[in-house]
Amino acid sequence: MKGLITGNAFVYGANVDTDQIYPGGYLDLTDPDKVAQHAMERVDPEFVKEVKAGDIIVAAANFGCGSSREHAAVALKASGIAAVLAESFARIFYRNAINLGLPLLVCPGIAKRVKKGDLLSVDFSEGKVTNQTTGTVAVAQPLSEYVIAILENGGIKPMIKKQHGLHCPR
């Protein structure tokens, strides 16, 4: 997968669950812009005020554990988050984010190497994460071919449309 992104980091700990990313009380919402207004509400109430398009979330192990709610991935994507880098991801969150075209990279030890506000660049072709603020480099685990295919199609919805010969506005 090609592409280079650069953005400032938000940094969180281990086991950030989807109730913290997107509280259950708002699950009846479906409009992504409204969903985004509650992103990270239970783990970082300042997030929605501070987040800018292109920012990157960094976390320790098991990011996105708990409920299957796709709202959690929708909230981050609609907030402008360009990628999430974590030591590991819970599996349903992983699928949900990839399906939406939000890249997730498994990066061992990443949470200890990044501080909030650090400028990161992620080179997807090499899986290389450079902390521009400190000069350190981390290498992410490679994505599977299927995941790369989904991301290169801009998410699984455009991919399925293409497979079914339907027009796909990007």
């Binding site: 299957s68 991935a73 349903i92 699928r95 949900n96 399906n99 699984i156 399925i160 079914h164």
Partner: peptide, 20 residues
């Protein structure tokens, strides 16, 4: 196993889903 909303929509459309 549990899946997200869009994964389930794919099953509605195709009757199938990818698994590792």
């Amino acid at each position: 196993t549990g899946v997200g909303a869009t994964d389930l929509a794919i099953v509605l459309m195709t009757g199938q889903l990818w698994f590792r």
